[in-house]
Amino acid sequence: MPSPYNLAIVEHCSQCSQRQTNGGFCNMAAEPVEALDSMKFTGAYPKGALLFVEGEQPRGVFILCRGRVKLTTTSTEGRTLIVKLVKPGEIVGVSAAILGRPYEVSAETLEASQVSFIRREDFLGFLSAYSEACMHTAQQLSEKYNSAQREIRSLGLAHTTSEKLAKLIMDWSENGEETPQGTRMQVLLTHEEIGQMIGTTRETVTRLLSDFKRKKLISVKGSNLFVIAKEQMREMVTI
């Protein structure tokens, strides 16, 4: 029988080959991992599935096992803003679950994903039983805080949208691969989503990327983006 959305679903964290790669929650000691296994509900979701919506009462937390998820919020003028791209091993919905307040962001899958759900009361009990889980949760909350701070820096300090886009590309390029064609990175986001990361429209992103290509700062082949003129791109970023 084919697996849902072609995902190789692994029901038990203790048997998951991604544990070490994902790190954090996935790679805790045997006892908390066993406890985690006993209280989580694992599911497969298609691209575009909403795990929770901003303003909804917190039912629990979600651990991303495989796939990608975006966290979005809505600006005071109604614009959607991506606050974070979530990687496997990350847990989402935590601050709402801990504070018992509505979710501050919405979580939506960017591709077919395997996600584990833990009910709020079970998660709080888990935290009080295992300080290792508290430590990983604290680290993930700090990471979310730092990621949002970086975005605030970009939104608040960049002089132009062009600078914001150049900064985003340069941030991505830090994890890129050096090739003879330039620093290569795979961008699996639509222009609309890139716009939501820097607070602008799809049309502006399309126009600016064309402009960057025309100036031979970058080149694009399929989902691969190459930074050709790293130094010039860096000079565009003043923040």
């Binding site: 935590v94 601050s95 801990i98 962001v105 805080y145 949002a148 701070q149 975005e151």
Partner: peptide, 13 residues
Amino acid sequence: LSSEVNAVYDDMR
């Protein structure tokens, strides 16, 4: 930490 994360999301909005 959760309150700080929420505050920074408020700033972003």
